[in-house]
Design a protein around this nucleic acid. Sequence first.
DNA 1: TTGCTCCTCACGTCACGTGAGGTGGC
DNA 2: TTGCTCCTCACGTCACGTGAGGTGGC
Lengths: 241, 241
Amino acid sequence: MTWSTRQIADLAGTTVRAVRHYHEVGLLPEPERHANGYKQYGVAHLVRVVRIKRLTDLGFSLSQISAMEDADEYPEQELRTLDAELAETIERLQRVRAELGTILREGTPTDLPPEIALATADVKLSETERSLIVVMTRVLGPRGLRAYAEMLRSYRTPSEIEEFDDLPPDADEHTRQDLAERLVPLIRDLFDEHPGLEGLNADAPGGARYAERTVGLAIKDVHHPAQLDVLQRIARLRQTP
Amino acid sequence: MTWSTRQIADLAGTTVRAVRHYHEVGLLPEPERHANGYKQYGVAHLVRVVRIKRLTDLGFSLSQISAMEDADEYPEQELRTLDAELAETIERLQRVRAELGTILREGTPTDLPPEIALATADVKLSETERSLIVVMTRVLGPRGLRAYAEMLRSYRTPSEIEEFDDLPPDADEHTRQDLAERLVPLIRDLFDEHPGLEGLNADAPGGARYAERTVGLAIKDVHHPAQLDVLQRIARLRQTP
DNA sequence: TTGCTCCTCACGTCACGTGAGGTGGC
DNA sequence: TTGCTCCTCACGTCACGTGAGGTGGC
């Protein structure tokens, strides 16, 4: 008598499968059956399913609900914990929305962290530059990142860097030495204009050495031998003025 | 050369298992391997994992990310859709929090819908009464529910109803008739004081007939034959004044 | 016989988590 | 030999969704 599975599901505002699932996990006792094997639910079952539905809608897990039924006292602690979790989730989602807002307003790329993305909003960068920026964002500390972003804000790829990026792998020594010599002053200017670049990796989370090694590996990975040779020449030129 | 699985995972701020999962679903190409079978990731892989991490943190699913990589144009539509979904989620969670707030402030039970829970906040009810209220909340429409809640607000279980709830299953005819006769005027008063009770199920979502049948079944379920006999006597008494 | 409702397996979903069992270089 | 890191299965998580295949009464 009374109700079939579909009927309590509809009455409780849930699905047939959910009701069966509550049987499976032991949250809802199985009712008696009709001669043909059909389940027959009563008011007590409906009350339980409605309760489960209410609590899952609030955000409780089935095992929490199960524990609360067992405890059988007013679940104040659980309610407060859930409320705090919801507050945290809401805050996180609001931060995400704020970020989505900037992305949509500024048309910033989706693959860089917010600050850096904003700093590079109206800067054209090569693939290589973008890749190395990503690596930087992963090894720098907050202060280093800010200094780096500040530098990027006024950065415009010089034609010499374009030359460097497009350097043929078989470029002869003269070409490489010449390019190195023309790059050195640019780098000097960059450091002069942005003193923050000096101690860039001072607050790197993994340590300055780790940051340095990581960026070094990245640089080796994205450049071919001729380009690496130019970089070595630059290093030598900067050491012996 | 360059990085092991653990190393890109750490650099990207994710887990080794996540990186492997991205291989499994085809979001991340497998890198070359060292002689011993160890994977060797490069900058391109790191950039990709960081991008995936950013997008999943924003709330995109892996298949959405996959589709966005294929499309390769600025995913404005997707960003807007996600933003709208987040706005909706936030609103829902805020409603839930508001409800949790009332529950915590008023100490209302967690198994009744908000309005009704408030209406019955300082009313002592028997198990049977509570069960039938739950059933009512599932069959009434919004207007019916409001009228019902309004009635409950001033409801105090009369001693005759307590008698009815505690009626022994083998109560003799005289007892049952006497109880029925004493209950009739109470019910009349209830309807007189709350005219809204008249068309209670007029806006029931499943139809008035369905609501009536459902509540009828519920009443049959929670009472024993002696009690049902009293209810029949009441019905007869009310029809022939 | 056809439709409709109910039933019980049992695999699928999503983004990984978590061992189990084995290998390679110090 | 012991520790550490890496590897590949492969099952587990959570709350159900979704068929597959079969039954019972009109």
